[in-house]
Design a protein around this nucleic acid. Structure first.
Length: 989
DNA sequence: GTGACGTGCTTTTTT
DNA sequence: AGCACGTCAC
């Protein structure tokens, strides 16, 4: 038999879908449309799966129908003309996979079909291990598409790539897809036999790509509400059972083509800019080099361009084996055009009620009912359907998220005809349709030749005026107050590079000091690029500088030339040789007790503290030594100067005379290490210490959106250490306001984070894509590594770990690693960084017992590696390729606020914005300085965000007082009032 | 194995 | 402060 199938729909459990998406409504609407086979959608969702098992019964092999009692109810609510269509359901689900392949983030949607409930249950169980299938009817999994296909096949189902041309979510999509189906499913690609063309393309477009010839081109509605059912559909001429349908798709035998939208109606058919009113055909876009002639930004490229890109034939005839297709305009749209209202209006619904009870289902009216019979009800509709069947429609292509418009009548024609004929039984008011900006016609232009980039002038040409002013300062003390995201490292490296390459300063006289290895490595790398061939720069951390000085003068402090540095474990070990008790030993270490230090020296060891204090003592005792180092390093720079502690400061003062060439760079409002001895006071008194000092402010922020910059400034203002603090946003990162969320519990707060990430990555951004918002909010094309979740204490991360794990979102804790706390493994983790791979592997095997356990033990450790060097060694130890398993590749970062310093992310969440946590308070202390530092901590956290910043807090603690300074933000959702537990009373005080 | 009790407590780099 | 964790006794 010949029947119409719509095998891509969603249930009420999918985001942005109507609450009416249940089996009864779907059945009712399928009958009205004339669709015999409907996908269940969402069978992976536990609640929907239960709904399916309770309300469906098997009707034919592999297909289901509504339970008899429910079916009868629907019969009663439909006119006899519609009761004849049988409605069968096939188990279907759309799955979104997000993963990294070939250095690009891939987001691909797939349709999966199963022949029976047992197979579906098996499939669900497999997926549940990989991700959270309960959070949405369209689950998002961090899974390679090929692996999803493998699971599907193993469970007995088949897979059809969904709406293959959609830019952001499809196998052939321009943004996150592939250039060929085979590239996506690799070795299993031969198991793909059909592809869904989607609303924005029709088979004729697909015929231009010969690589698609071997696939059946199916169409479905992707309905988010029952009335959208069958707006596109597939036609079969075979038995109405699962196996016949599958066979028809596999072989083409029994496959009778598809019912299509006019592709011009799709929202991303051609290219353009909605805001600028610019719409272009692909070749016009090419002629403009993809740039909008109005705003000079890249145009949003549509499906037609993507097809053009992959096409290897001119448009024209279908390939030999291809089935045909029929282009339709949904009946409600045609009737809406005639009566002058939208397609969903009550008027249209009533009219279609009348038409369908007289003439049969909508699809039958559009395709098969004789025009004269239709004209008997409405002359205009008869004329409209006749034109539609001849393909005589007016097409206004969609672009940049704007729906295209397909009209049957010419402008003004309806008005003329209305005066002559009565329309249906009532007179239609002529309502002016809402005007939207007409696209500007753009003449194709010849692409201008691209001017070659000419390298001239000084290294400093690439700096902005403030950066340049700082970099250009010749000699003498220089203080650079560099706000977040203002190009601190860039300024410093350019300054040093310019001194060495253009101003005759010997590289050997330059010393740059940082606090962390990471910062030192970054500076070294960037200087290597700016000063090719220069080798004598000294770039050191304070501690490595200490080692350098001690190696040169070891005998003065009673060490051998090959003295060692004790790590914390060794420190305790040494202290234990002096006292018996572990607790006491730790106290010795902390206090730097003389007995402990003596024992260290006896072993030819120093500890980290000694690396500063011993060189300091050496220099304080020896003016000669001071003079020697001052003449050796005439040019000294210190990064993050607000973080120096007293000893480091004293050492620095000895290394540089008061009028010396010392450049200190930093931001006192980012001083967050007071607890470990840092004193921002040294930064603040730089001009007293170095009276000749010049000061330069860097205020141009190249990192964050205006909303983030403004909010961060408001938060820091009450206690800013930079008088008249300025920070100016320089890049357009969209206009998303800062989001503030109040959750009912820590778990709910974590769930909010996970949910929001899912939404931005896939689920709701699909919705956003539907409504054309993606391009403007800048969240397209994000991967997991573009998200960071920041918290005050490590303990808060627990709820986040749980929620992210639950949702199947890959993440990485960048600071503490719990595994590393285990003795033995901690040692190995350390060895991973410095020992050879072979040694490491041996030692891990010894601890783990077998290779598999060793691998499992090492895998999470690798996530803590900070540098490529470490990752290389870790990979070496595991005997695997770095690129194929590197877990840092694409993960959400879970960080403390402290650890976030110096980093940046497109999307940042700061959880626990509550009084008591931020600022952190604990009893007995009431330190105003400490509160100010907590405020700076929030400032640091907020300024990590590039585009989106979310601040959240939970019921139970008052909201952080720091947020009171925020003038504008978006309150997102809100907590349900917390239920009082029985027997507990909420205190009023 | 488990209940009672006591203790200690943020943030973190440095070879 | 409250909470998590360790230790001891049973």
């Amino acid at each position: 038999m010949r029947f119409v199938a719509d095998l891509h729909i969603h249930s009420k459990y999918s985001r942005a879908c109507s609450r009416d998406c249940d089996l009864e409504h779907l059945t009712w609407w399928a009958r009205r449309k004339g669709i015999s086979l409907v996908g269940t959608g969402d069978f992976t969702h536990p609640a929907w799966y239960d709904h399916l098992t309770e309300n469906l019964v098997e009707a034919s092999p592999g297909l289901f129908r509504l339970r008899a009692d429910l079916d009868r109810d629907i019969d009663r609510r439909l006119p006899p003309s519609l009761a004849t269509t049988p409605v069968r359901f096939m188990l279907s689900v759309e799955i979104s996979t997000i993963y990294k392949r070939g250095d690009r983030t891939r987001k691909v949607h797939h349709l999966v079909y199963m022949p029976d409930l047992q197979s579906a249950a098996r499939f669900n169980a497999r997926l549940a291990k990989i991700g959270n299938i309960g959070s949405d009817g369209r689950p998002i999994l961090g899974l390679d598409s090929r692996d999803l296909l493998e699971i599907t096949l193993e469970c007995g189902g088949y897979l059809v790539p969904a709406h293959v041309w959609t830019p952001w979510f499809a196998v052939l999509g321009s943004k996150s897809g592939f250039d060929a189906i085979d590239d996506c499913y690799v070795d299993l690609a031969s198991h793909i036999f059909a592809v869904e063309t989607g609303l924005s393309s029709d088979p004729a477009m697909n015929w231009r790509v010969s690589g698609l010839d071997k696939y059946r081109l199916v169409s479905n509605s992707d309905a988010h509400s029952p009335p959208a059912l069958g707006r596109e559909a597939t036609v079969f001429d075979t038995d109405l059972d699962y196996y016949s349908v599958r066979r028809a798709l596999e072989t083409g035998d029994g496959f009778a083509g598809s019912l299509e939208f006019f592709p011009e109606e799709g929202k991303y058919h051609v290219d353009g800019h909605r805001k600028c009113g610019v719409r272009m055909e692909p070749r016009e876009t090419l002629a403009h080099n993809g740039i909008c002639p109005e705003c000079r930004k890249p145009l949003t490229v549509g499906v037609l361009s993507r097809v053009e890109e992959l096409a290897d034939r001119e448009s024209g005839s279908p390939p030999a084996a291809a089935a045909g297709f029929t282009s339709l305009v949904p009946l409600p749209e045609i009737v809406g055009e005639i009566v002058g209202t939208g397609p969903k209006s009550k008027k249209v619904q009533t009219e279609i009620d009348r038409l369908t009870s007289a003439l049969g289902p909508e699809l039958v009216i559009l395709q098969d009912v004789p025009v004269d019979d239709i004209a008997a009800h409405s002359t205009l509709l008869g004329e409209a359907v006749a034109r539609l069947r001849r393909g005589e429609v007016v097409r206004d292509s969609g672009y940049d998220g704007e729906y295209g418009v397909i009209r049957v009548f010419e402008p003004g024609e309806l008005e003329r005809r209305r005066s002559a004929f009565s329309l249906f039984d009532y007179a239609a008011p002529v309502k002016s349709t809402v005007e939207r900006p007409r696209p500007v016609a753009v003449e194709p232009v010849t692409p201008a030749p691209v001017a070659p980039v000419v390298v001239t002038g000084s290294l400093l040409d690439g700096l902005d005026p403030e950066q340049r002013a700082a970099a250009e300062v010749d000699g003498g003390p220089l203080l650079i107050i560099a706000g977040p995201g203002t190009g601190k490292t860039r300024t410093l490296t350019h300054r040093i590079a310019d001194l060495v390459t253009s101003r005759g300063v010997p590289a050997s006289e330059c010393l740059a000091i940082t606090f962390t290895r990471r910062a030192a490595e970054e500076m070294a790398e960037r200087l290597a690029v700016l000063t090719p061939g220069v080798r004598d720069l000294t770039i050191a951390t304070f501690h490595s500088l200490g080692v350098l000085i001690l190696r040169e003068h070891h005998s003065s402090v009673g060490l051998s030339a090959s003295f060692g540095v004790a790590d914390p474990d060794r420190q305790v070990e040494v202290a234990l040789s002096v006292v018996a008790d572990a607790k006491e030993a730790r106290a010795l270490v902390v206090s730097g007790d003389e007995r402990y230090k003596k024992a260290l020296r006896a072993l030819d060891l120093v500890d980290f503290e000694d690396l500063i204090s011993l060189p300091l003592a050496l220099l304080e005792d020896s003016p000669d030594l001071v003079a020697a180092y001052r003449s050796r390093w005439r040019w000294v720079s210190v990064d993050e100067y607000q973080d120096v502690d007293e000893q480091q400061y004293r050492l620095l003062r000895l290394l540089t005379p008061p009028d010396g060439n010392l450049t200190a760079i930093g931001d006192p409002d980012q001083a967050i290490y007071r607890f470990r001895g840092a004193d921002v006071g040294f930064f603040l008194r730089f001009r007293e210490d170095f009276p000749a000092a010049r000061t330069v402010h860097l205020t141009r922020n190249y990192r964050s959106s205006a909303a983030v910059v403004t909010g961060a400034l408001e938060v820091i203002a009450p206690s800013s250490l930079v008088p008249g603090r300025e920070l100016r946003p320089m890049v357009d990162h969209g206009s998303a306001p800062i989001g503030v969320h109040h959750a009912s519990s820590e778990a709910a707060e974590a769930a909010f984070v996970a949910r929001t990430i899912e939404q931005v990555l896939g689920g709701a951004s699909f919705h956003a894509f539907d409504s054309g918002r993606v391009a403007s909010d800048g969240t397209q094309g994000l991967g997991f590594s573009d998200f960071a979740v920041l918290c005050r204490t490590d303990r808060q991360s627990r709820a986040l770990v749980d929620a992210l794990t639950q949702s199947g979102l890959p993440f990485q804790k960048r600071s503490h690693d719990r595994l590393a706390d285990r003795p033995g493994v901690a040692r190995i983790a350390n060895d991973l960084k410095y020992a050879s791979g072979d040694t490491v592997l041996e030692r891990v095997r010894a601890v783990a017992g077998d290779d598999h356990t060793a691998y499992e033990l090492l895998k999470p450790l690798a996530a803590t590696c900070d540098t490529d060097f470490e990752r290389f060694h870790t990979a070496l130890a595991l005997g695997v390729e770095v690129d194929t398993w590197d877990p840092r590749a694409d993960r959400i970062s879970l960080l403390t606020l402290h650890a976030s310093k110096g980093l940046e992310f497109p999307v940042v969440f700061i959880v626990g914005c509550a009084d008591g946590l931020l600022p952190m308070r604990w009893p007995g202390t009431d330190d105003e300085e400490a509160v100010d530092e907590e405020r700076r901590l929030l400032f640091v956290g907020m300024t990590r965000a590039q585009r989106h910043l979310y601040l959240s807090h939970t019921t139970g603690r008052p909201r952080s007082p720091f947020l009171n300074a925020l003038k504008a933000y978006d309150q997102i959702g809100d907590a349900q009032p917390r239920r009082k537990r029985k027997g507990t009373q909420l205190s009023l005080l």
